[in-house]
């Protein structure tokens, strides 16, 4: 999984080819190939091909098969609609709109890979107590856990998601104490181990806080605190 992801990550940003090779092809195939090539990193859906070229269903299917077997085009997964088959010239890599960006593989989020990278980031922040983005980025590069290079932006995306999950917190360095190795005023990260995740709220601790029927509940109604099964369970009165 990791290897697949790595390949995707290195080439998943929709690169443009240097020069177009014009192959000798039968008329229908050439017409289709020109159209597909003109769509560059966005690719084109088969239904749109039929509409734009005016070719019959059979002719398009046959030409696509032939072009694919000759290695001129490829099919790519569209993350917005996996059933919608999109074709693209082999010289292009799908744009972010089609592939979903750097963290996607085969049209799906590469969750396993993201989890490993998050774990590595967390480990390094915990090792240093407080770390800057650059510290973590450098550590990931030096650790050789991954055989590809991540950009600073990619590490920032991961760290920001960890801040949203309250695994890390974003701070401004004071330059002293735990922050001694970071210049005062710089943005840095600290692990929230032990107090990570959401804080237990006062309201959410009561059944009504998360009750899906709160709007139907009234003192004398069918649903009321006196008849509420959630209350009985919460209070240990469901005997």
């Amino acid at each position: 999984m990791q290897n697949i992801s790595a390949v995707i990550m290195m080439s998943g940003t929709g690169k443009l080819p240097q020069k177009r090779k014009v192959p000798a092809l039968p008329e229908n195939e050439k017409k289709l190939y020109d159209l597909i090539w003109s769509k560059e990193t966005l690719g084109i859906w088969t239904a749109d091909m039929k509409k734009e070229t005016g070719l019959s269903n059979n002719a398009v299917t046959k030409a696509l098969k032939s072009l694919q077997s000759k290695g001129f085009i490829k099919d790519v997964v569209n993350i917005h609609n996996k059933a919608k088959k999109i074709y693209m010239a082999v010289e292009f890599e799908p744009s972010k709109e089609i592939s979903g960006g750097t963290w996607y593989s085969e049209g799906s989020l590469d969750l396993e890979f993201i989890t490993i990278l998050r774990e590595q980031c967390r480990l390094h922040v915990e090792r240093l107590k407080v770390a800057t983005l650059e510290n973590v980025w450098q550590f990931i590069r030096d650790s050789k856990v991954f055989y590809i290079d991540f950009s600073l932006q990619q590490i920032k995306e991961i760290m920001s998601a960890m801040v949203l999950d309250k695994e890390l917190e974003e701070l401004i360095s004071s330059g002293v104490g735990d922050f001694f190795h970071i210049r005062a005023g710089r943005e840095c990260y600290r692990s929230l181990k032990g107090r990570d995740g959401p804080k237990e709220g006062f309201f959410s601790a009561v059944p009504c806080g998360v009750c899906p029927r709160i709007n139907e509940c009234s003192p004398d109604g069918i649903i009321s605190p006196n008849t509420c099964v959630y209350y009985q369970k919460w209070l240990g009165l469901d005997y």
Partner: peptide, 25 residues
């Protein structure tokens, strides 16, 4: 924020909590 975020977490789950925190931020 903590109070409402905790409510979102318990009511809708971890992913919703992440989205909610992003939008609050």
């Amino acid at each position: 924020n903590d109070e409402v975020e905790s409510l979102v977490f318990k009511k809708y789950g971890k992913e919703s909590y992440r989205i909610f925190r992003l939008l609050i931020k």
